[in-house]
Design a protein around this nucleic acid. Sequence first.
DNA 1: GGCGGGTAGGAGAACGTTATCAGAGTCCTG
DNA 2: CAGGACTCTGATAACGTTCTCCTACCCGCC
Lengths: 342, 342
Amino acid sequence: MPTIRDVARRAGVSVAAAARALGGYGYTSAATREKVLRAAQALDYHPNAIARSMIKGRTQTLGVIVSDNANPFFASVVRGIEDAVLGQGYAIVLCNADEDPAKEAIYLRTVRQKRVDGLVISPSGGSAAALRGLMDSGTSIVQVDRRLPRLAADAVLTDNRAGVRAAVEHLIRLGHRRIGILSGPRRLYTGRERLEGYLATMRDAGLPVADGWVQEGNFKEASGYELVGRFLGLRRRPTAIFIANNLMTIGALLGLKEAGVRIPEEMAVVGFDDMDWAPILTPPLTAVAQPGYHLGATAGRLLLERLAQSYRGRPRTVVFQPRLVVRESCGAPLRQGPGVRR
Amino acid sequence: MPTIRDVARRAGVSVAAAARALGGYGYTSAATREKVLRAAQALDYHPNAIARSMIKGRTQTLGVIVSDNANPFFASVVRGIEDAVLGQGYAIVLCNADEDPAKEAIYLRTVRQKRVDGLVISPSGGSAAALRGLMDSGTSIVQVDRRLPRLAADAVLTDNRAGVRAAVEHLIRLGHRRIGILSGPRRLYTGRERLEGYLATMRDAGLPVADGWVQEGNFKEASGYELVGRFLGLRRRPTAIFIANNLMTIGALLGLKEAGVRIPEEMAVVGFDDMDWAPILTPPLTAVAQPGYHLGATAGRLLLERLAQSYRGRPRTVVFQPRLVVRESCGAPLRQGPGVRR
DNA sequence: GGCGGGTAGGAGAACGTTATCAGAGTCCTG
DNA sequence: CAGGACTCTGATAACGTTCTCCTACCCGCC
């Protein structure tokens, strides 16, 4: 790989002159510029960004740490981030931490050693100290989707409680009284928020939450599949369930289908995260839609503003209001006994 | 951010001694090592990977260029790559080229300037020259999902033709004679391969391909939605359609649903790419399953072997055999007139 | 007591770029 | 024609590591 030294030699000028011609700064005569550009072309010269970072102190690289890129929600977030920062010439290094604090710690060390200019992270919790250390060293951080209790970094979130409230109130409005939740892990911000949104809404409506109506899963498909069966076996069985994320919704719907439970007659279902396949289900799935792509794009934008120092005030929090997309997976509940066949 | 110079000063030793103690090479007395490690800890020292890359000539970074990370298939591929290379200490920079040669060219320049050690790419075509240039400069390249005609780089592919053949033959076996295809762009490898798999299978079965039975979409949901209507309006309307990728399948199913077309009675459907939501559809979707994650993981592994020089032979091509997952979206075709209501 | 081998530690070069500085030439102006 | 302003150029110092030398010490052995 040719260096600027090779280019300079071939053009018959000094390294400094070549650097000026290629970099477009300082004074360069037209003749010199011409010679240098021609030499660079001939040698297929590509400047070494590593060496440039060395002296500039910036890498034009951003770290992105999410739990799992294979989850469509995070895939959209990542895509949003990238689109937002691409124009400014930033590349992103992608890290899947799987909500594992150990893995997250490793990745934090990696991006730190790589001297990324900024970081977008969906923190699992447990690495608050490392994040603070990174911030102290001057790296800008934006949290997305999840946030840590007292980390003084920008955050872009969905109003989880409001989303859940809209979903549960919708069920109540339809006449449901026995409503269960297939929740996420309590140790995760989104798991907690959505569970508490559910509990608060039930409380406000004066509805009891019976034993077994709260099933804590791990946000993965298999746990939705396994846990949905628990609802069916209950003596006071819910007539409706809220499912706290997209993957568990797939698992739960599969479980219900295999058990031959009709939706919404025997069990109404609302999911969190509106996926593009939700409308093609039978019945089409009612879901709380959160704008993953926009969360990412906004996080990217906030980060850019920090990097450009066009904003240097106190940490900002942007909260997106989710939208309940009503379809047909939650009708009125059964009046009595086993369902009527239509 | 402290440098090794700061650590050395604090420990009261030379930079060279500190480097040895931290890097674990050469001779270091226990006392010195102790002092250095303690100083590093106290200063929260994180070695500068940029500077290290500078002298080592390797960046421990890999480029990954796919068309769209928001497409679940590519999201899995990316995830597979990352999992495969994580253990070896490589980070990946993710690029979404959107099948746009211009964008792809920009990203290729970026990863080249960043001096990535290797590249996994799903090439759109059109940047063959840039790829060759990159290879000539010593960067290892592995193609995934798609390949360029005569690029001497490793490739990890799905046997698209075999997958399509299995799908179409399945339809034929069920009695379908009029089979259409909602194909991808001809300019893309996968678009071509899948279309030709369809044409070859029809030809081999002695079945005609009538006007309008081949609709060329762009692999996105909207095009599936729009184009599926064309099939419905045909005078010789197909009784079955094969849809060439996951996103178009969603669009097409939505279009069919809105048009009130019953599946499989009025229109049988097989899709390419088995998604986790396929089983929860009504009827569950028959689909050609290709192992996205494994494609990625294998591509990552091949790349690692190139980088470690544990393999330095001629370019290898790994072809995964897709699997037809038969569910219920393609029953026997209608004998006559409008379908029977059940 | 000289010598070789093992151990320890420091000085300084290198990686490829950008930035600073000084030197020199040209042109205009009073 | 002196002086300044502007233009162009090249030498060289950084950036933070790693790595190659070189020196020095200690120990055991002939």
